[in-house]
């Protein structure tokens, strides 16, 4: 038997909203430690890795590890039927899971709705993501990163990210001209969510597709801060951390010029 009850149902709605554009079908791997998902987009340029710890659900029950093959589009449609304040419970019979039951209860428990999502067999290979000691790790307000991606997209579909000890610089060059945004580390003690920090092993400069980065910023509502990890000739890691776990996006770099 699998059962996972999340009092903050809105979190699940936002999580699904943050992956729906990138991935169409995915396996939710359920185990006693929690729920995880790893999936690449169709072009194998970007990968999303989601992890929700069992402790974040109450109750959480998963008698044996199994996978729920989900069409994220369909799941999103059903999630739209949940209120932002609803408690959401996921249930499945882990021996012959051919459907996922979703229960939405409003706070006063007067309104309970139940949906069954048909599951699919998804044969998806998992990639092993090497532990990387990144050249640069940048923490910044997630809204700031979202704005930079949106603003620089008016100039070009690519952005070069340069990180040095005391600056992260985003540069875009296109037909209409160029644009760049430079951020310096700040440490606002009273408002940690607005701080910008740079941990630097060595300077790094990489180019990425802004289309994908903008897509990743759908994770902005999940966390006040976003972490960017860069290493020369390695995919970028963009992470939004939550109490219950994290959502990580990896993006392969653009090379040559």
């Amino acid at each position: 038997m699998f059962e996972a009850r999340l009092t903050q149902g809105a979190l699940l709605k936002r999580l699904l909203d943050s992956v729906k554009e990138l991935v169409t079908d995915a396996n939710f791997d359920c185990s006693e430690t929690g729920i995880s998902l790893q999936a690449m987009d169709n072009s194998h340029v970007a990968l999303v890795s989601l992890s929700l710890r069992a402790e974040g659900f109450n109750p959480y029950r998963c008698d044996r590890g199994f996978s729920l093959g989900v069409n994220l589009n369909s799941l999103n449609k059903i999630m739209k039927c949940a209120g932002n304040e609803d408690v959401i419970t996921l249930k499945a019979d882990d021996s012959s899971a051919d459907s996922l039951c979703l229960l939405f209860e409003n706070s006063s428990n007067e309104r309970v709705s139940e949906y069954e999502l048909k599951l699919m067999d998804i044969d998806q290979e998992h990639l092993s993501i090497p532990e990387t000691d990144y050249d640069a790790t940048v923490m910044m307000p997630s809204a700031e990163f979202q704005r930079i991606c949106r603003d620089l997209m008016v100039v070009s579909e690519s952005v070069t990210i340069d990180v040095s000890k005391d600056e992260i610089k985003f540069t875009a060059e296109g037909e209409l001209g160029t644009g760049n945004v430079k951020l310096k580390p700040t440490s606002t003690i009273d408002k940690p969510e607005e701080s910008i920090t740079i941990e630097l092993g060595q300077t790094v400069s990489l180019q990425f597709s802004l289309k994908y980065l903008s897509n990743f910023t759908r994770g902005t509502p999940l966390s006040d801060q976003v972490m960017l990890c860069l290493s020369d000739n390695m995919p970028l890691l963009v992470e939004y951390k939550m109490d219950i776990g994290y959502i990580r996006y990896y993006l392969a770099p653009k090379v040559g010029d």
Binding site: M40, S43, H44, V45, A46, L47, E125, H126, L127, S128, I129, P130, S158, Q207, S209, M234, P235, Y250, A252, P253, K254, V255, G256, D257
Partner: peptide, 14 residues
């Protein structure tokens, strides 16, 4: 013109 790489060049299947 810069070229987009693929994740398969960096992450190997398990």
């Amino acid at each position: 013109m810069s070229k987009q790489t693929k994740l398969g060049a960096f992450f190997k299947p398990k």
